[in-house]
Write a protein that binds this DNA or RNA. Structure first.
Lengths: 113, 113
DNA sequence: CTTACATTTGACAAATTCTGTCAAGTCAAT
DNA sequence: ATTGACTTGACAGAATTTGTCAAATGTAAG
């Protein structure tokens, strides 16, 4: 995931938001859940914040651990994937910023030279 | 793109189908278009048959070459991407076939041993 | 059938992206 | 200032994607 896309669009994905909610309602710690699923705590944290995408198997295991509907989580996870590739294409803003950045750099070079 | 997904789902994507149509209507050869765009002929062929996905820049250049609406092609191309990741998840059929394949292999091994 | 030309296919290495691991960082409560 | 929970960033190895090329296939004409 490019940084620019990450920063312009949204933080927590549908999936991450939901599993964090489920976990917290059960009073389970992130690191406990991570340990129980044999997933690194850092990765688990990133899943919940939508910074990384789990794979199909991980989604299923997470659903089983949280005793929740597997299909609900798979659907949210798939929605995230679609949402991501679509938002990647709303890159006009990114392109504009790139141009500005290039121009600024040229400006500074001109002045200091 | 995994072979299984490629074989179950559809051949020519929306994008490839459209550009082939546009190209043929203009009576241009695939290799001519490829050469003019400095894209390998093999790759161009794969784009048209949906076997590989061009990147954003290539789509824009193709649109310019074909003198057609850039946004139309970008939209078709994005539709292909979405369609692909969704179809990837309809993998029940694939999984079933995998199991059958494994079982058949076991069967044959048992008989020939 | 064999030549000529257009397209397709498959294999490959180089480039890029994704993944898990880890150490160091923040933050809140004590 | 210490502890505990979570977050962040860097990294190497794995996996996927990319362009290139040669060989294969298809097709029309002589």
């Amino acid at each position: 995931m490019t940084n620019s896309v990450k920063s312009i669009f949204g933080q927590l994905g549908n999936f991450g938001q939901r599993i964090r909610e489920l976990r917290e309602n059960k009073g389970i710690l992130l690191r406990q859940m991570a340990a129980s699923l044999e997933i690194d705590t850092a990765i688990m944290s990133k899943f919940e914040r939508g910074e990384r995408k789990p794979n199909r198997e991980q989604v299923k295991r997470i659903a089983r651990f949280l005793k929740t509907d597997k299909n609900e989580l798979l659907t949210l996870w798939l929605a995230d994937k679609v949402q991501y590739i679509i938002s990647e294409e709303m890159s006009l803003a990114e392109e504009a910023l790139e141009i500005v950045k290039r121009n600024i750099k040229d400006e500074t070079r001109t002045h200091t030279d």
